[in-house]
Design a protein around this nucleic acid. Structure first.
Lengths: 69, 69
DNA sequence: CCGTGATGTCAAGCGACCTTGACCTTCGTC
DNA sequence: GACGAAGGTCAAGGTCGCTTGACATCACGG
């Protein structure tokens, strides 16, 4: 599962702290999502996608081959 | 936050148990999501959307006006 | 009347998401 | 060298997603 949060953030010239505040989450959460420590919840995924003017499906691509089953 | 899981399931003539098995989750999980008890995780949201040949954004619409904050 | 399929509730437990707070390193600048 | 901004780690704690298992209801066919 890859996500384009980091590149979208850098494209806007924002720091992790800036993005965290804009999304209403902690800086830890932004770090953890960017680094793939865990996946955002569905509501947070929507806020991220909308903040960057994108869609959940475009921001996070689920790789079918990586199903943990 | 509304979702179209129930109507998509009924449109295919599937029971909750059928859908649960197809998604690899428990029947409780399907019931809880359909009834709005809680939101699916991001991976499960993707599996649901793909199972029904749709997108996460189309299956679950986040209502901006219903932000809990 | 009895059984079965479909939907639903409740409860206990586990792990993932998210928080706060303390601390570290690197880089640029004064 | 001292400072601040940015990215990162670690730990403890709370809430939510998901599980299993037991049980209740309603409609239906035998």
């Amino acid at each position: 599962m890859r996500n384009r949060v980091r590149e979208a953030r850098l494209a806007r010239g924002l720091s992790q702290a800036d993005l965290a505040e804009a999304l209403g989450v902690s800086r830890q959460t932004v770090i953890s999502i960017e680094r793939g420590r865990y996946l955002p919840s569905l509501p947070l995924a929507f806020r991220i996608a909308r903040f960057f003017g994108s869609t959940v499906d475009a921001m996070f691509d689920m790789d079918e081959s990586k199903r943990s089953s």
